[in-house]
Design a protein around this nucleic acid. Structure first.
Lengths: 146, 146
DNA sequence: CGTACAATGAAAACGATTTTCAGTTTCTGT
DNA sequence: ACAGAAACTGAAAATCGTTTTCATTGTACG
């Protein structure tokens, strides 16, 4: 059931950004590439900044923040919530998948095949809430971290 | 399946804190009371600070941070992760329950009766991870926020 | 009751994120 | 191609939440 991190189609990311009216600039490309190449692990803005500067030293940290925001808005990356902090991002898998994260190294796998819609509507029927979203995440240790 | 927020037994909280070697001071009592009285909604450190000062104006924000840390450590409150930020806390329900949060007002219900252990061991068997924890949260709108 | 030490609050330090702003780059229409 | 409008950039400064420091206070234990 766990799946290899879906290899990212960078061109599709760029298409989505353009469709949303964003301009394809050099810094944006650099940040997107960093996120795409590291689609198997979580990265904080500072880590993205450092990796990006290896290819494009002029890159500014402010731009990294702004670009991550755009990438999240168009849905190609997603924020990851962990006990140690909630400022990391990772390439978003296609479709609705759930995260399996290593508490130690931040490595990620996805798993799918879990249908929670049934559960969700049961809970909804018995509560005063209209449920819009759900969030399932498994936390553990990757083999080399055990 | 959703349950009313378990009414909190403050004395039990104090017992747990003492058992862990913490001293029962006035500021700690104030912070604990705030969390206990608001067990149906999430509160940020600043909100706890403001509410606490209504009863005890000398209360310092630093103490709020330190006390929330203690309350979390002994397991009577838990941190809540939301899109808008991950710095809110709420009284922890007894046993393993899952959260249903209103995206708008922060109001919370719990639901239980979902056994994920089966799923977890299936995923574990097919991945390179040893799974230690899981995390399921439903996000929606409470009736008065719809 | 008195002592040891955890806990407190104010101020300062800190790190992460946001705002400001002047200059640059990208895209659009011609 | 090219000019102009608007989006985007990077550096510095401002801001926000959180942590550290430290002198003082309060609590629990003997």
């Amino acid at each position: 059931m766990p799946a290899e991190p879906s290899s990212v189609n960078l061109e599709e990311w760029f298409d989505r950004l353009e469709d949303s009216g964003y301009r394809l600039t050099k810094p944006l490309r650099v940040v997107a590439e960093v996120m795409a190449k590291n689609s198997y692990c979580t990265l904080s803005p500072t880590e993205v900044y450092d990796l990006g500067r290896e290819h494009y030293p002029k890159l500014g940290l402010v731009t990294v923040y702004r670009t991550l925001e755009k990438l999240e808005e168009v849905g190609v990356i997603q924020r990851v919530h962990q006990a140690g902090g909630c400022n990391s991002y990772i390439a978003a898998p296609s479709g609705h998948q759930h995260l399996l994260i290593c508490r130690n190294c931040g490595r990620v796998e996805y798993f799918q095949g879990i249908d929670l819609t049934d559960l969700v509507s049961r809970v909804e029927a018995k509560s005063y809430y209209s449920i819009q979203d759900h969030w399932l995440q498994l936390i553990g240790l990757y083999k080399s971290c055990q």
